[in-house]
Amino acid sequence: MRVQDTILVPQIPYFHTNSTSPRQLAKSMISLRSYIQRLYLVRCWQEYKLLFFLAIIFIGAVLYGHKSSCEVTPALVMGMYAGREQRSADDFLVITADNELLDLHHTLDEPRRMMIYSTLSAFYQAVPYQGAPAGEDPKAPAIRELVRKHPYMRLLSSHAMNAKEDYGQYLPWLLQYIRHSVKRDIQHLGIYQLHVHYDKQNLPVADYRKILYELESPHTK
């Protein structure tokens, strides 16, 4: 099958710039018109205006996202993994269930891992140790500043953060989720911080681990 080459940015037509012939000029104008008509946005405008406006909104959201670092899904900003940093050490959160390591290392297990470790990491940033009076979303100061500068954002941002009291319910939820997702009747959950440094060859070496939170089963029901 021959693929019709209707494209976003077609090849720019050849112009007879040194020609003064009216016929050549007309030919060039026709090819320019044909070029413009093949542009995706022009075709959207001609055939389906709603899609044209959606495309414009998307492009606007992408530009805004790049300028402000505030995304508007699905206009994603894909630059998040583009760092330039050389790490000498890292801290990882690890979980033991009844004194056994909860090992969800397989990449295919990513959705479940995210539900456990990504939420735990967020909780740890808000409530760094057991017995802390209350948690606070790490982005709270930035949102307060945003609302101070732009008061019209108050309503939109009103549910952008967790309530402080919600943090107290997290660990029981985590235990319940792990019990259901690994299908084991876990009685005791231990959450540790594992410190790793990178040696001269850049390979990870585990240094120590310290306990952060502990939870017993009765909390769940």
Partner: peptide, 28 residues
């Protein structure tokens, strides 16, 4: 199979909206 459908989430308590206005609106 990876326990991430809505009914498998066990009524989660914490959420993350990041700086993404779609999520802000959605939670609103």
């Amino acid at each position: 199979l990876t326990h991430s459908l809505v009914h498998q989430m066990q009524q989660p308590v914490l959420y993350e909206t990041d700086f993404d206005y779609t999520y802000w609106l959605y939670h609103l």
